[in-house]
Design a protein around this nucleic acid. Structure first.
Lengths: 236, 236
DNA sequence: ATTTATTTGTACGTATGTATC
DNA sequence: GGATACATACGTACAAATAAA
């Protein structure tokens, strides 16, 4: 124990020892920890002190108390502490990408308005399928300003997420706006995804802004609900 | 004070009185509250009891303590506890709620496992419709521990969002986990929502944890895509 | 189904430490 | 320095829920 610990309040020292016991799985997840009486004897402190340490750990989501029953170590102690809060998770083992179309086009009124591109400028259009274990799970339409699109053109069939590549050209995003909805698969989409028309799809519309607040991407991706998790976590 | 209060623990009763004092601005924001000694005399309880009540209110973000200094009422008590970039937006002018079912039930295996409720305990079940301009836009199934459900029971047909009411009982959430997906309307759901079976719905599954990290709500809400926006904004 | 022992929760009292004013 | 206020820590007793006999 560091001398740093010695001047700390007793209950904090005990709390730290308890955290150690949990981390080293001396107290395994889901198992009961010693009773308050036992802990009092073990650490030679009063019940007040034990209870204050335990209370803090319950608050931290590490322990779990129930009146009359032994105190337990919580099963999943807040898993990913570093969650940015939004988790996209594609389900499957072998992930792959298939390009349906990749070209510069003039007419695409809506996409161009989203990208703040003038009427007479070209836009880079990408249509792709996301495959998991050789089976399609998503259909994506993606639009970028022509100059940016050319930079990722040859990576488009390797990675579904293209932004890491843009980073190499010193293009970074500052803001991502997503609108999550649901839609029925059209005949065209159903055909591509190997489902029947009308099945529900998770419909994600996304606009990504660069450092200069100018749009660098507008996309629409439709996932099979069974193969995709869109999770949000608010709070700590 | 209702007789309902009398059987509650002393420190909870005191806590509720304190919350009342804060809400009614008998203790105005930013101002000091009476010292522990004064509160002991005023309520005729021990210091332990006062401290437990105060501790909970500090944890809830309502009070603020500093060693050696008087305890104060926090200026902005978790006003913007919500939305670090997550926006739910229901489209419509005249919003209303219709209750389909509201009762305590025993059998609901999945919901109870989500709420960490034991097999022989009852769970509060709420089924509601969300109406916008007299037309249904969402169907919600909501489960709560019985004691919490009873607190919002009479507000359930007034407000779709029940958490502000729970705040008055000093029940606050610490974490909200949402899983957004899409599903096809069943015949039952289609009938309730006035659409045809099979239409795509935004399917939101939510688990809310309280300050003690225990689940206080598990719900599943299905929205008509045309009447609901689920927006995420990552970054600044 | 009852009882009994165990375990956590509530509540009291007292003393001392330490930061603020 | 002194007075005040919150923080830590000890002790005791009983209540309430649980689990085992």
């Amino acid at each position: 124990m560091s001398s740093h610990q010695r001047k700390m309040p007793l209950y904090v020292q005990i709390k730290n020892k308890m955290i150690h016991n949990v981390n080293e799985e001396i107290w395994p997840p889901g198992e009961s920890i010693p009773s308050e009486s036992q802990l009092m004897a073990q650490y030679n402190v009063s019940r007040t002190t034990i209870r204050q340490a335990v209370r803090d750990l319950v608050q931290a989501g590490i322990l779990e108390t129930r009146r009359g029953a032994p105190t337990k170590v919580r099963q999943q102690p807040q898993e990913n502490m570093e969650n940015p809060g939004v988790i996209h998770h594609e389900l499957g083992e072998e992930m792959a990408v298939k390009i349906l179309r990749a070209e510069n086009r003039l007419p695409h009124y809506f996409a161009k308005s989203q990208l703040h591109i003038s009427e007479d400028e070209e836009v880079y259009v990408l249509e792709r399928l996301r495959l998991a274990d050789q089976k399609p799970i998503a259909f994506q339409q993606l639009f970028m300003p022509k100059d940016i699109g050319e930079k990722v053109h040859d990576k488009a069939e390797v990675d579904f997420d293209l932004f890491p590549h843009l980073g190499r050209y010193n293009i970074h995003y500052s803001t991502i706006k997503e609108n999550v909805s649901a839609s029925n698969a059209t005949r065209y989409e159903a055909d591509l995804l190997g489902i029947t028309p009308g099945e529900a799809l998770i419909d994600i519309e996304r606009i990504t802004l660069g450092m200069d607040q100018q749009p660098i991407e507008y996309s629409r991706t439709k996932y099979l609900p069974a193969s995709f998790h869109y999770r949000i976590e608010i709070g700590s």
